[in-house]
Design a protein around this nucleic acid. Structure first.
Length: 619
DNA sequence: CTAGGGTTAG
């Protein structure tokens, strides 16, 4: 809502209007009415009057920017305020603007008509600019004497950082001796986004002062870089300094917990949010729900989800995705149906998550239904990702011919991800010929992705084709591609413990290995047999079994057993997919030691209980 | 008028 306040001259010359010194505009229809009044009163060239109309039309969510531009064009001598209003509107307009007026043309117009920019002019202009023009603005700022204006300078930093020129931002930043906290924080954020996380941290450590935004910039930077542990450590440091959490920091730290699967820490943050009475807006709520989903506590995710009075698209998507990765396909579909019945409009991610849910729960008919449904009902064009998910779903269900057929019928060239999905299916079902053909194509399309080499090598290994295994490994080596190192994380009493295959560095290493021995003895007594087939190195059988016994998840489970009692839950996060042997062993452990073991692997959750896994061995 | 948080297969 905009209040149209008549100026003193306005009142003086138009006495019949004198009693209406404040007129409100809240719709475009109001605005049109007042515009015609303004015209009738002969004020269509009166800048202060028209400026208010332009401001509403240009900036109100219910405004109309093209109407604002028409008003502007009718003005013989627009002033700086009016230009600035339009710069602001143009900068917040989605670019490329459908309007015929670009910010640079408007600026030329301004200068050509000898209207001097003021300190409100450059910030919005810079926000809207990309490089060639941004540099022109830079020199204009210096020429017109705005170089020490913090708003102009800070937006200049933003502009260079967003244009991918951190070096130019640095030049401006280090040339100024009086940078404020916003400038410092902008640089921290910019360095993080440019992948220069260590530079960001160095700046953060030398900042003359910090506020919550600065702390959050650095914490969020770590999260963005996948350095979740560093994010949590920094957050702890922040709290140790007595600085209280707000919703932004809360969201960033929750994301870090999500990345690591640290439920305890996530719950701690949730508690802080509650005790500080921080309102769960849709973003924070979604982050929180995502944390609970990905830390293995679906019930709490559902609880938060149900407590929300209104759900936004991303919240629905998050909950559907949560059910999907826990293998609860039917529930995911039910959430989708609830969303529709409440008038929610799905997007491509909604359908992707529904398809993932179907793929993980062997709901092939349902998956096909929703794949058609998104086209029929919502007129959406399935993207590469949707095809990939369908290929995965069909392939995993053993429908390899159908999966291959779908790839042939796709309207786009299949990318490495699609072929990788089919390769994965070939690996599961031991289809070597097709797998070999597809795998080679996938590798050529994306030669730096180690996963495809490993899948193909494992496929050959399963068939005993050791020469082919060696060839794939040689190719990997020649290209300098390395298999990602597997690790498992387990949080215990606020401490995050990390295990790597065969690792010996844990302070409780001795106890852990002795528990591991006991664990293996007891599950062997119950019928567990090591499945050496999953180790594709051409080792002796004994060596393979050794390698298996020390997989990181087995170490993590042994550690978990030491620190829990019968009936407790053990939560583990693994960075790669769990292997068949560990999956089998964990089933035994859950029964023999009476623990519920919730294992998050790269793709999904496995809930082990009383000797069974929630995935029903379908993964 | 400048810096900060959400969903995405294999």
């Amino acid at each position: 809502m905009v209040v149209l306040v008549s100026s003193s001259s306005f009142n003086h010359h138009h006495c019949h209007y004198h009693n209406h010194n404040a007129i409100s505009i809240s719709t475009m229809s109001d605005l049109r009415q007042y515009h015609s009044l303004v015209v009738r009163l002969g004020l269509s060239s009166h800048n202060p009057t028209v400026a208010r109309l332009i401001k509403f039309a240009a900036l109100s969510p219910s405004g109309d920017l093209s109407y604002a531009l028409r008003l502007f064009r009718l003005l013989p001598t627009p002033d700086a305020f009016i230009y600035n209003t339009l710069f602001l509107a143009l900068s917040s307009h989605p670019s490329p603007s459908p309007l015929s007026l670009s910010p640079s043309r408007l600026l030329s117009h301004m200068l050509h008509h000898s209207v001097s920019p003021n300190h409100f002019t450059f910030p919005p202009l810079l926000r809207a600019s990309s490089l060639p023009f941004g540099r022109q603005l830079h020199s204009l700022i210096y020429k017109l004497g705005f170089s020490s204006d913090s708003f102009a300078r800070n937006n200049l930093l933003c502009m260079y950082l967003e244009c991918g020129c951190p070096y130019d931002a640095c030049k401006v930043f280090y040339a100024s001796l009086d940078c404020d906290i916003v400038a410092w924080t902008t640089m921290v954020t910019g360095f993080s986004k440019a992948g220069l996380i260590d530079h960001a941290r160095a700046l953060f450590d030398t900042m003359p002062e910090r506020n919550l935004v600065s702390w959050n910039a650095m914490i969020a930077g770590y999260v963005q870089a996948g350095l979740f542990k560093e994010a949590l450590d920094l957050f702890d440091q922040m709290q140790a300094q007595g600085i209280e959490i707000n919703k932004y920091v809360g969201a960033s730290v929750l994301s870090a917990c999500t990345g690591l699967g640290t439920l305890e820490k996530g719950e701690f943050i949730h508690t802080q949010i509650q005790s500080k009475r921080i309102k769960l807006d849709s973003k924070l709520a979604t982050t929180l729900i995502d944390m609970y989903c990905k830390c293995g506590c679906l019930e709490k995710a559902i609880e938060v989800f149900n407590s929300l009075p209104a759900k936004k698209l991303s919240t629905w998507n998050c909950m559907i995705g949560g059910f999907a990765i826990h293998g609860r396909g039917i529930d995911a579909i039910q959430v989708f149906k609830n969303m529709e019945s409440q008038g929610g409009l799905p997007d491509d991610i909604t359908f992707l998550n529904v398809l993932i849910a179907c793929a993980h729960s062997r709901l092939v008919a349902e998956g096909k239904h929703y794949f058609d449904y998104m086209v029929q009902k919502y007129n959406m064009e399935p993207k590469m990702e949707h095809y990939g998910c369908m290929v995965d779903m069909l392939g995993r269900a053993g429908l390899l011919k159908e999966a291959k057929q779908l790839i042939l019928e796709m309207p786009m060239e299949p990318n490495a991800d699609i072929l990788g999905a089919l390769l994965g299916a070939c690996k599961i079902h031991g289809v070597v010929d097709l797998g070999q053909e597809i795998g080679k194509r996938a590798i050529e399309l994306d030669p730096l992705n180690s996963g495809r080499y490993v899948l193909l090598a494992n496929l050959f290994a399963g068939a005993g084709r050791w020469d082919d295994v060696a060839e794939v490994r040689k190719l990997m080596g020649d290209r300098g591609v390395h298999k990602e190192a597997g690790h498992s994380l387990i949080e215990m009493n606020g401490v995050l413990n990390k295990f790597v295959c065969g690792g010996r560095s844990h302070p409780q290493g001795k106890e852990i290995y002795s528990m591991l021995d006991e664990m293996l003895e007891r599950i062997k007594a119950e019928g567990y047999v090591a499945d050496a087939g999953v180790v594709s190195h051409d080792l002796t059988k004994e060596q393979k079994v050794e390698a298996l016994y020390y997989h990181s998840e087995k170490l993590a489970i042994a550690f978990g057993l030491i620190h829990t009692r019968a009936g407790d839950t053990i939560r583990i996060t693994k960075n790669l997919r769990v292997c068949r042997d560990c999956h089998e062993a964990t089933k035994f452990v859950s029964r023999v030691f009476d623990r519920e073991i919730i294992l998050r692997d790269r793709n999904r959750f496995h809930h082990f209980k009383r000797g069974d896994c929630s995935c029903k061995d379908y993964w």
